[in-house]
């Protein structure tokens, strides 16, 4: 087959593909059925009373459907450790285990041009870092009242950590931004999250139930706790990934 015929065949296949998908999706995307009201009506009437969180999205995200959120943080966990393992070592880190030399997580650094930091960048990010961190903690802790929550706060915290890492001097040992510590925080927060999720089993309120329901604690306290743990985990994990990618590891 000549190159030209091949190209036409290729384009024809793609056109067919897109047309078929369009034909299938048109009724779904363009449907003008009225949107169902049942879930909204239920939540507007009972959501605040049942969960204690006035932000209904938080109430769903960490209350009604917290199990989904657990799955989501697990996806993030696998993505981060998989990404780092793949970029830093290819398959080797997965295949060999503990034989690897430590502290190689920043391998991609070699591909960045040496001049990624300037004097100005250092000063600005160094000063901005703590502010961003505080803002992240605010977003994280007030997610049940206002927009935001553990995940969004965690992302802000991660960027704060990256700012701190960019702002610190090359040889200054910055304990918060060292990859080892970030990995420690992340794994500890993951273990805490699992403990919090299963604590309801022991206290009798069921899996992902509010463990202290018997002691008069409102569910919102449990939501805040989950927010804090998730924020910590996401912040440490994403911060670790970004620092490893920017080549600022030890």
């Amino acid at each position: 087959m000549s190159g030209r015929a091949r190209r036409i065949l290729f384009l024809a296949q793609i056109a067919l593909c897109v047309l078929l998908v369009a034909a299938v999706l048109i009724p779904v995307f363009l449907s003008s059925m009225p949107w169902p009201l049942s879930a909204r009506d239920y939540l507007q009437a009972n959501g605040l009373a049942e969960s204690g969180a006035s932000n209904l999205v938080s109430a769903i995200y960490l209350g009604y459907r917290a199990f989904d959120t657990l799955g989501e943080t697990i996806v993030l966990l696998v993505a981060i450790s998989g990404t780092i393992a793949i970029i830093a070592h290819g398959g080797a880190v997965l295949a060999q285990g503990y034989g690897l030399p430590s502290g190689t997580a920043s391998e991609p650094a070699r591909h960045l041009p040496p001049k990624t930091r300037t004097e100005l960048l250092e000063v600005v990010t160094g000063k901005l870092g703590p502010v961003v961190l505080v803002f992240g903690v605010y977003v994280m802790m007030y997610g049940h009242l206002s927009p935001g929550g553990g995940f969004q706060g965690g992302v802000v915290i991660a960027s704060g950590i990256v700012f701190l890492a960019l702002g610190s001097r090359v040889d200054a040992s910055n304990s918060l931004t060292s990859p080892e510590n970030l990995v420690r925080i992340e794994s500890a927060a993951f273990a805490l999250l699992l403990l919090a999720a299963s604590s309801g089993i022991i206290s009798g309120s069921g899996f992902f139930g509010n463990p202290l329901a018997g002691a008069g604690l409102t569910p919102v306290a449990f939501i805040i706790t989950l927010n804090a743990i998730i924020g910590l985990k996401v912040g440490a994990g994403l911060g670790f990934m970004c620092i490893a990618m920017l080549g600022r590891g030890k």
Binding site: V183, S187, A188, F190, L194, S198, I201, F207
Partner: peptide, 20 residues
């Protein structure tokens, strides 16, 4: 639910072992 949580707990332990 311990069918789901036990392997996850195992994963958390592996990560803790790696970190600490």
């Amino acid at each position: 639910f311990s069918l789901v949580m036990l392997p996850l707990l195992g994963a958390a332990l592996v990560m803790l072992a790696k970190a600490f």
